[in-house]
């Protein structure tokens, strides 16, 4: 068996929160001994309601949050706890990239789309300015944006267009793993579908693994092979998307599926009847 591109072992995050009443602090366990693996070129979804700790898992993997204990292995190599410097920081950037939930805050309002993507390219690759512009154009094309979008500022773009730019920027570093933290949940359904199709297409043409963080089971069904269900910081169920959504073993997963506002909803893409 090959090394998984991403492995998380006994990951734990405890926040110190101030007590609502009285003095002192108390501990809030946001993530409790989470373990899962993301296979090479795979697609894994972490689902759960808000407050279940799924975003904290994503932020720890991206290096935006310090873990309390446990380990994160990217391509079989453990990530240290210290703030990365120099070459290590760049190496991590080429391993894991992240697309954030809110398309309206995920781009620098003072930067044009071209310079936003070019900044990442010139950080990671030695390119002539001509080559760099070509790469920017190529990335914009990949995410389905027109070339004229390169010279505008984010304020001229819609939420869906901004999210595509955010994806293009993340892809510019050519990461092995792309984390999508509720990356489509702020968008309306048609734009959502376009972006999900785009992500599916990219997986055909590049070697890239996805880690989806989502509460939307319809999205998860469409894009991920495997699913991890989190509830109050703990992983309650792991399995292939079809199995988990069709025959949930855990009570919480059953309630999560039952909460989808479509009565009698069934997985449709790979719908199979049970003999």
């Amino acid at each position: 068996m090959t090394t998984p591109i991403l492995e998380v072992r006994d990951l734990r995050k405890v926040f110190d929160v101030r007590r609502e009443q009285g003095r002192g602090k108390e501990e809030l366990v946001a993530v409790d001994d989470a373990s899962f693996t993301l296979p090479l070129n795979g697609s894994l979804a972490v689902v759960g309601e808000s407050g279940s700790g799924k975003t904290t898992v994503a932020r720890m993997i991206a290096g935006l949050e310090q873990r309390t204990s446990g380990s994160i292995l990217v391509n079989g190599v453990e990530r240290g706890l210290a703030r990365p410097r120099g070459a290590e920081r760049l190496r991590r950037g080429k391993e894991v990239q992240m697309v954030f939930q809110d398309p309206y805050s995920s781009l620098d309002p003072r930067q044009t789309i071209r310079s936003c993507i070019a900044e990442v390219l010139s950080l990671h690759f030695e390119l002539s300015s001509k080559d760099r512009d070509e790469r920017v154009a190529g990335l914009l094309g990949d995410v389905g944006l027109a070339q004229r979008h390169a010279s505008v500022h984010p304020r001229s773009l819609s939420g869906g267009q901004r999210q595509r730019v955010a994806i293009a920027r993340a892809l510019a570093a050519e990461p092995r793993v792309l984390i999508l933290d509720e990356a489509v949940s702020a968008l309306d359904v048609s734009v959502q579908a376009q972006i999900l199709n785009l992500l599916g297409d990219l997986r055909q043409t590049r070697e890239i693994s996805y880690l989806f963080i989502s509460h939307d089971l319809a999205v998860v069904q469409q894009v991920s092979d495997e699913v991890v269900v989190m509830h109050r910081g703990r992983i309650v169920e792991v399995g292939s998307t079809d199995d988990v959504l069709r025959a949930p073993a855990d009570e919480y997963t059953r309630r999560l599926i039952a909460a989808v506002p479509r009565p009698g909803w069934r997985p449709q893409r790979h719908a199979r009847t049970v003999d």
């Binding site: 760049l90 894991v96 990239q97 992240m98 939930q101 995920s106 781009l107 990442v120 950080l123 920027r169």
Partner: peptide, 14 residues
Amino acid sequence: HLAYVESCQVVGLS
């Protein structure tokens, strides 16, 4: 803590 600053961090800017 807006996403654009955090994404700069993830990208690997100093």
